[in-house]
């Protein structure tokens, strides 16, 4: 089990271009295919992971690892997702080539970034609707979710409120609404 957790999250870590949000739906797919985490639990895990400091993907790995195999599982999954970054950054730093000055590299990132945009949009849709569609919720719940989500976007963009403040306010709004 420990090895499986490590191997899965190592693979996820290798693909985490653009950071954590871009691999959230990948994590959900891989863990639900294995029958580890259902949509409802994933929503919980993602919410808790997003509340804590650090990358949402790494935090999700920690929680999934813990749910599967206790403290050792949490460590195996976390090491797995972080290790590719550690190794690749070490290699890039050691042979420090000014990557971004090369035409080929620029052209590759020119094509990669739009994919990352799609992955993050998809993660937003998937995570936002996940659990809401799998076991149908009353319209009241869906309306509340949309309302809070929209309010957060306004707060983040217009008033530049700190993300942590936005999360805490949403928790309060959740208590009032749901």
């Amino acid at each position: 089990m420990l090895w499986e957790l490590f191997a899965l999250f190592f693979k996820v870590g290798c693909m985490a271009f653009g950071g954590g949000y871009a691999v959230m739906s990948l994590i959900q797919r891989e863990t639900s295919d294995r029958g580890w985490i259902d949509a409802e639990s994933f929503r919980e895990i993602g919410s808790l992971a997003g509340m804590a400091p650090g990358s949402i993907a790494t935090n999700s790995a920690t929680l999934i690892g813990y749910a599967q195999a206790g403290a050792a599982g949490a460590i195996a999954a976390t090491v797995g997702i972080v290790l590719p970054s550690l190794l690749l950054v070490a290699v890039l730093t050691a042979f420090f080539v000014r990557l971004h000055d090369r035409f080929g590299v620029k052209a590759a990132f020119y094509g990669l970034r739009p994919v990352v945009v799609a992955l993050i949009v998809y993660a937003g849709i998937h995570f936002g609707l996940g659990g809401l569609l799998s076991n149908p919720q009353p319209a009241w719940t869906i309306a509340g979710t949309l309302l809070i989500c929209g309010g957060c976007l306004v707060a983040l963009v217009k008033t530049k409120l700190h993300p942590l403040a936005v999360i805490l306010l949403s928790a309060a709004a959740g208590i009032i609404w749901f």
Partner: peptide, 17 residues
């Protein structure tokens, strides 16, 4: 409360996108 947080995290993801 967690349901509220879920909506907020969704907003953070959409904002990053």
């Amino acid at each position: 409360a967690l349901q509220g947080v879920h909506a907020a995290i969704t907003a953070l993801i959409l904002l990053a996108a």
